[in-house]
Design a binder for these strands. Sequence first.
DNA 1: TCATAATCGTACCGTATGGTACGGTACGAT
DNA 2: ATCGTACCGTACCATACGGTACGATTATGA
Lengths: 209, 209
Amino acid sequence: MEQHTSTRAQQTRERIRAAARRLFLRQGYLATSMDAILAEASISSKETLYRHYTNKEELFADVLRHLTLQRPDFSERLTTLPAPHDLPSLRHALTQIAREILALMSQPDYLALVRMIIAEAPRFPDLGALFFETVPLTGISIITALLRQAREQDIIADVDFDVVARLLLGGLLSYAIPNLVSAEKQLRAAPPDRADALVDMLMRALTPR
Amino acid sequence: MEQHTSTRAQQTRERIRAAARRLFLRQGYLATSMDAILAEASISSKETLYRHYTNKEELFADVLRHLTLQRPDFSERLTTLPAPHDLPSLRHALTQIAREILALMSQPDYLALVRMIIAEAPRFPDLGALFFETVPLTGISIITALLRQAREQDIIADVDFDVVARLLLGGLLSYAIPNLVSAEKQLRAAPPDRADALVDMLMRALTPR
DNA sequence: TCATAATCGTACCGTATGGTACGGTACGAT
DNA sequence: ATCGTACCGTACCATACGGTACGATTATGA
């Protein structure tokens, strides 16, 4: 056997990372001790942990890098949307996107990730920049691409697409942000019709006059 | 002398709170030690500190409560705006508001406050709720009030004002949020013309057709 | 089978933390 | 002058933390 997809060492490393991810997301960096990570990973020796990660910082950075780079999986579902051919289809596509983003931003895991990134940004500035330069930028570019397609078919007026994208994304944010400071138990679920209302209002600005 | 506006004890208490505010905003709750607060406040005995605040938690809560309740001072400047009498004056008023809010959200102190509230929300859920139920709600109500005035004079169409307010506020957010994870030194100053662009786009949605 | 790497247990170190104890000193009001 | 309150200095405590040391034990791969 030469081609082992996962050696024992790799398995332990991933157990550690998974345990650390859970605790870091729940409690933050400082409040999570290495001993607690040990217990959560069902590992019984510190030596084992420090064989895989020389530092607490390194472990944290690894966890966060994995989280941000594996995160934008929803973008695949959105980039394959068919090009809009008239106003109703554009509205439909935008609504689809808005609902998807709102659903993503309402997930407890996503909220916990954002909260932790913001919380530890002073300690790990690079990781915060990495996150905010990948995830939200993806959303903006998806929306602007859709609008550009619509513009090329003369469906909508010639407006600043970036501004429109920020209005939509920001409007969705205004529903999700309060959940950043709420306990996980009592999330105020922003109903999908809020996304529809935002899109409807934006359509008024997009239609030529 | 009976009517002392500030006794010696009150002065010390405020010195402590000011020092704690600086350190908490800069480093967060866990990373700020009581000894560090002592030094920052130029106080030389722990006994003095614990005479004013029985807990670290109590001190933190006091700092945050003061910060959130003293914060919305900009609202006074905005609620006294003259009622709009036509479309240009409405655009002007909205631009004014948008610029003011953008400027507020770009202040390092404000960013640090928001970051800290988000970071410590799991530990202090009440304080987070207090902040997000006062400050942003104030912004929304100011905008909706302005729009209602404009609607009563038939300047704008009959649309959902809350949605419009969230679009504007959220659009501004999209420029400010990345600064939550940037070092204080390299804040990407969102230029005021971004606020103008957002308002211009919204005006397209507001005008009757 | 054998050598090597990974894991285990456990003990340990230095440092920092939140909070307490206590005797002494400066101050402010009556 | 005096009395209570606030402040000072310093020492202390129990606990927790990140990280290291090291011998014993187990699994893995050739």
